[in-house]
């Protein structure tokens, strides 16, 4: 696939924290204009992959590109220029605690544009209303619930209509109605504002609503990627477990205590 069609890709990505290998030879493509969902259980390396793609973590081996730039090795000026065209929603929101919600959302506008202040205010109000936080503009992030913080963070990440929007679990921990609202918003961004979305999620209902494409991670390896329907039809048992919501058989590390404690004659 030609690079121009991809907003981001990873090739042979390896990353280890000490002895723990979190990513093992990850190859992944994120096409322009699509919503790509990165799936996988807790600890499968989803967040780590995202942080590598935006250059927050340097991989031990392999390479990545974000909007055509090798983000890890590029000089600071080029990296910042590319990151202006990118938005990221962090798992815990990462709103600035010393600012109000409105100031948080306004920050990218102040830093990266020369719009008149009145227009910035209008954009902040508009986007906050879109995420259902019109009333929360002058409150501090610490006064908001977890779900509201996440929506405020989404407003901040998307205020510049980025070319790529990375979302780390946009709807995790939210009630089903709010979660569906966020999904709708992501679809709106992708279809109407031409934002390519890369979203980490492990909520199947959300995946079914928004995903054009999925990348499935298990234990730091990509075991499948492609259109949602293709991947869903795969016979791979690990994918079957995910899509059929079956818990995998519990791994037993030793023998049950009961066997150990049973009298000899009873064991026969």
């Amino acid at each position: 696939m030609a690079d121009v069609d991809l907003v981001a890709w990873a090739r042979g990505l390896d990353l280890a924290f000490g002895e723990r290998r979190v990513l093992r030879g990850v190859d992944a493509d994120f096409p322009r204009g699509a919503i790509t969902c990165v799936l996988g259980g807790s600890g499968s390396g989803k967040t780590t992959l995202l942080k590598c793609l935006v250059g927050l973590l340097a991989p031990s081996a392999g390479s990545t590109a974000l909007l055509g730039l090798d983000i890890v090795r590029a000089p600071a000026a080029e990296r910042e220029a590319v990151l202006r065209r990118v938005g990221m929603l962090f798992q815990q929101g990462a709103l600035f605690g010393s600012m109000t919600v409105g100031e948080n959302v306004r920050l990218p506008l102040e830093q990266h544009t020369r719009l008149p202040p009145a227009l910035m205010d209008r954009m902040v109000d508009l986007r906050l209303a879109q995420v259902g936080l019109a009333d929360a503009r002058d409150r501090r992030p610490s006064e908001l619930s977890g779900g509201m913080q996440k929506r405020a963070a989404l407003a901040r990440a998307s205020i510049l209509d980025p070319e790529v929007l990375f979302c780390d679990e946009p709807s995790a921990g939210l009630d089903p109605v709010v979660s569906a609202g966020i999904d709708e918003l992501l679809v709106f961004f992708a279809r109407r504002l031409h934002v390519s979305v890369v979203a980490i999620t492990h909520e199947l209902s959300s995946v079914e609503r928004i995903a054009d494409r999925v990348v499935m991670l298990v234990g730091g390896e990509v075991i499948a990627q492609g259109a949602l329907d293709e991947v869903r039809a795969s016979p791979d048992p690990r994918l079957r477990e995910f899509f059929e919501r079956r818990p995998p058989p519990t791994e037993r590390l030793g023998r049950p205590l009961l066997d150990e404690l049973r009298p000899r004659d009873a064991r026969r």
């Binding site: 942080k51 935006v54 250059g55 927050l56 600071a76 990296r79 910042e80 220029a81 590319v82 990151l83 202006r84 990118v86 938005g87 990221m88 962090f90 798992q91 815990q92 990462a94 709103l95 600035f96 605690g97 010393s98 920050l107 990218p108 830093q111 990266h112 990375f166």
Partner: peptide
């Protein structure tokens, strides 16, 4: 303490991803 808390809360990472140099800012 203030900057340390910002690091823990990923606020510094957020700045970097916004293309804002944390040292400058």
């Amino acid at each position: 303490a203030e900057l340390g808390t910002m690091v823990v809360r990923e606020e510094v990472d957020a700045l970097e991803v916004m293309g804002i140099d944390p040292v400058q800012y």
